[in-house]
């Protein structure tokens, strides 16, 4: 069945209103995007939403009890809760460096979880 959906692009803060015509997973037309990222974004929003997951991981002996982390690439939106639980169980030892891998290949997504700041030991 042919469907039309309007999506606010969040590839950048500009926020283009993109209209996608699609039949299930088959994209027929994409309109309203100011750049190619917009088209890619709109396509993904129809087929399978993915997002970067930023959160925190618990730290032992750190200057702070937590270190902020993120996934190195977008992961499927429906995996977020599972990913949070997985990361929530982890505890790492300070010191940490920005970019340091905390969990490799999170839930087989191909994305690693990495530290997003330097965190010295206590």
């Amino acid at each position: 069945m042919l469907e039309k959906k309007t999506i606010t692009c969040v590839a950048c803060p500009k926020g283009c209103e993109i209209t996608v015509e699609h039949d299930g997973d088959e994209i027929i037309d994409i309109m309203g995007n100011a750049c190619p990222q917009g088209a890619d974004y709109a396509k993904e929003e129809i087929i399978a939403k993915t997002r970067i997951l930023p959160t925190t991981v618990r730290v032992k002996n750190g200057a702070l009890p937590l270190c902020p982390v993120k996934t190195t690439k977008q992961i499927p939106l429906e995996l977020m809760d599972q990913a949070m639980n997985k990361i929530g169980k982890k505890e790492v030892e300070a010191p940490l460096k920005v970019g340091q891998v905390i969990i490799k290949n999170l839930l087989d997504t191909g994305a690693d979880v990495v530290a997003t700041r330097d965190l010295p030991a206590n």
Binding site: L66, D81, N85, K86, G88
Partner: peptide, 13 residues
């Protein structure tokens, strides 16, 4: 405490 509200999903593997 942080992570205190998270469930037990994601254990597999």
């Amino acid at each position: 405490k942080i992570k205190g509200l998270l469930g037990s999903q994601g254990d597999e593997e």
